[in-house]
């Protein structure tokens, strides 16, 4: 029983990390239909931003407030990835809308450039982010361990999902965003500056990847390939959930996360990867559009 609860907790934890990395993709890929191969590198940017903020704090602040660095690191990671995403959209992606293969190749190139840039700046060795003391350790209940940093990440993911939901469905900007994604030309006729909306939407998606980077930095060492470890799962989660639906992404991420942990628990980690892929393949054979399909009278594409 205890082992099962532990596994379940790990499953929730992994699902939340997959969800955090796929949330940004749900925006850039799900809403904007841009296959951004550099999404993983925005995760990396967030992780290195966290590392940089940590070093900055230990250089200029007294020891007592150093642990607070993490609360600065989250917005810093978001801001760094947001800014980079905005630049990338402005200079490259905006010229490649509707050219799927071109944007895929271009963003793959950007991914390589960013990885090399990270190696040049931070070195090839992985760097470590020390979790602040209040995130070290965990709660032990009846032989089960719930580590604080994983609980924290789950909460963080919850906040991020809620924020994305509020921005998309409750804010004025979200309304403009959905209008542009549903019908660009008509949105412009409604006085919406679609170029600006595209740019900010892409930047928000990238910023979310940055927050994901901030949280994965707590779990292991950060190097230039840190994003690559998560990107495949993230894409699978978005596709599985059904492109363009937030709830779909949440469920997709949970399925991917739980399936990998449970499969890994009863087999080995490489078999687990194969099992997850198999689930995705079989599922998409049956339902090529994912869990949630947008059905409508006027959507006959």
């Amino acid at each position: 029983m205890a082992q099962f609860i532990n596994t379940l907790f790990n499953a929730v934890s992994l699902s939340s990390i997959v969800l955090l990395t796929s949330l940004g993709l749900a925006v850039t890929f799900g809403l904007m239909r841009v296959i951004n191969m550099a999404h993983g590198e925005f995760v990396m940017v967030g992780a290195y931003a966290t590392y940089a903020v940590q070093n900055l704090f230990s250089a200029i602040f007294p020891k007592s407030i150093q642990p607070l660095y993490y609360f600065v690191a989250i917005p810093a990671a978001f801001a760094a990835a947001f800014a980079l995403g905005s630049l990338l959209e402005f200079f490259i992606i905006s010229r490649l809308y509707k050219r799927v293969v071109d944007s895929l190749l271009a963003t793959w190139g950007i991914s390589l450039i960013l990885q090399q840039a990270a190696r040049s700046i931070f070195g090839t060795q992985g760097v470590n982010v020390t979790a602040p003391p209040f995130l070290q350790g965990g709660i032990f209940i009846g032989g089960c361990t719930f580590s604080y940093n994983r609980i924290f990440i789950i909460a963080l993911v919850g906040i991020c999902v809620l924020s994305v939901y509020l921005i998309m469905y409750k804010s004025g900007f979200g309304k403009q965003m959905r209008a542009v994604m549903q019908n660009r030309a008509m949105a412009q006729c409604m006085g919406i500056n679609s170029r600006m909306v595209d740019n900010v939407t892409f930047a928000i998606g990238s910023g979310l990847a940055g927050i994901a980077g901030c949280s994965v930095a707590l779990l292991g060492s950060v190097d230039s390939t840190v994003g690559q470890n998560y990107i495949v799962n993230a894409f699978m989660a978005v596709v599985l959930g059904g492109v363009g639906k937030l709830l779909g992404t949440v469920l997709g991420a949970s399925i991917i996360g739980s399936a990998s942990i449970f499969a890994e628990n009863y087999t080995s980690s490489s078999i687990a990867k194969a099992i997850v892929l198999l689930i995705v393949i079989v599922f998409l054979q049956k339902r090529p559009q994912g869990l949630f399909v947008i059905k409508n009278r006027s959507l006959d594409e």
Binding site: R178, A179, Q182, N183, M186, A187, N296, R297, S298
Partner: peptide, 11 residues
């Protein structure tokens, strides 16, 4: 008011 109306279908 375009031909085909162009109502935002999901809204």
């Amino acid at each position: 008011v375009p031909q085909g109306r162009d109502i935002f279908p999901q809204m």
